[in-house]
């Protein structure tokens, strides 16, 4: 007997909501049952795109009319807690765009609620589905460069090049600036590759907005590993968000960035000979299917993420980017903000 198709709603039809709607239209045609968009001036545009499903002004109206299996929440951060609770309380699975909430305390509360309700609950860490960074972590875990000794993780973007207004730049609504907004992707990678640091020391700087526009954080680990995390959304030369990771190990170095993983080994390791190697995204991303909406932003990662989320909802299994698994990112962000005066924090 054919499996009953999932019924999915998207809440918040800004840029991210539209992207998820496009992914679902290709990935699971017919699964997108309803939309929620608080600004009804945007409803005609959504209709003209060919989105024929009902559009509601709020989540309660949606839930009163539909029994959805899952909701993808793409609204501003300060609304996540209330909306996520609304869906989880009714046993609806959720994928919430990162960051989960504005604070570690609120994220912990949601993680507990998700566990209590047994709902599939994921955070939008699409970086986890990026073939370049996935390969880099796989190589680090396999010990290709030996024990890591020090690393640098950088985020650069030309997003804030002058005074800015809006919720994203108000700490009470967004939780902070570059650290909690674009950078959780990079923090997720660092935690996955190196674990939680023993102590850290952060320097945060506001240039254009009331939140931090730049952050420089030094980290120390139980193993003796030392790390640096540096993020700025005020780099004019970087029109597209750029993440990079460089690790020096006992037997070589590894770098991962937008397009490729680079290796330099001082002795053979695994399938790699001594010397330099380059593994390009083109070789790691061998997919005949999938959907790419914005290649510069590697939007195919969202497609892979949505696919795994739907598979997990069907299988009633938590994805890797579950609330519980990603809570460490919120904890690390919290530690960075607590150490913002430049003192070391354990």
């Amino acid at each position: 007997m054919a499996e009953k198709p999932l019924s999915v709603a998207i809440v918040g039809m800004g840029k991210m909501g539209l992207s998820h709607a496009a992914m679902l239209s290709v990935l699971a045609p017919g699964s997108l049952t309803a939309l929620v968009e608080a600004q009804n001036a945007g409803h005609p545009t959504l209709r003209s795109l060919g989105l024929r499903m009902p559009i509601y002004d709020d989540a309660e109206s949606l839930l009163a009319a539909h029994a959805v299996d899952a909701a993808i929440i793409c609204t501003p951060t300060f609304t996540h807690t209330g909306l996520t609770k609304t869906f989880l309380e009714r046993g609806v699975s959720v994928l919430v765009e990162k960051p989960l909430t504005e604070s570690f305390a609120k994220s912990s509360e949601l993680a507990e609620l998700a566990m209590k309700k047994g709902a599939i609950a994921a955070v939008g860490y699409s970086i986890d589905y990026d073939p370049v960074f996935r390969k880099a972590r796989e190589l680090l875990r396999a010990g290709v460069i030996g024990r890591p000794l020090k690393y640098g993780a950088w985020l650069e973007h030309a997003e804030v090049l002058g005074p800015k207004r809006g919720w994203l730049f108000q700490k009470a609504k967004s939780g902070g600036g570059v650290v909690i907004n674009p950078a959780p992707h990079l923090l997720y990678l660092m935690l996955d590759a190196f674990g939680f640091p023993k102590r850290l020391c952060a320097n945060l700087r506001s240039v254009w907005t009331e939140v931090e526009d730049e952050a420089s954080v030094e980290l120390e680990y139980e193993s003796g590993l030392k790390g640096l995390f540096k993020a700025s959304w005020s780099v004019p030369e970087k029109p597209a968000l750029e993440l990079s990771l460089f690790v020096e190990g006992e037997h070589g170095t590894l770098a991962a960035s937008d397009d490729d993983v680079l290796l330099e080994l001082n002795r053979p390791s695994g399938n790699f000979s001594t010397g330099t190697h380059r593994l390009h995204r083109g070789e790691l991303e061998k997919e005949a299917d999938g959907f790419e909406l914005a290649p510069a932003a590697h939007a195919a990662n969202y497609f892979r993420q949505d696919k795994e989320f739907l598979d997990c909802v069907r299988a009633k299994a938590q994805p890797r980017n579950s609330f519980a698994n990603t809570l460490q990112v919120d904890r690390l962000i919290d530690a960075i903000y607590r150490s913002k005066d430049g003192a070391w924090t354990s």
């Binding site: 020090k150 640098g152 030094e218 640096l228 460089f246 020096e248 680079l262």
Partner: peptide, 13 residues
């Protein structure tokens, strides 16, 4: 490219 990364880390850390 790896040398540039190494120099950058030495500068920043």
């Amino acid at each position: 490219r790896l040398t540039a990364f190494k120099d950058r880390l030495a500068r920043d850390l």
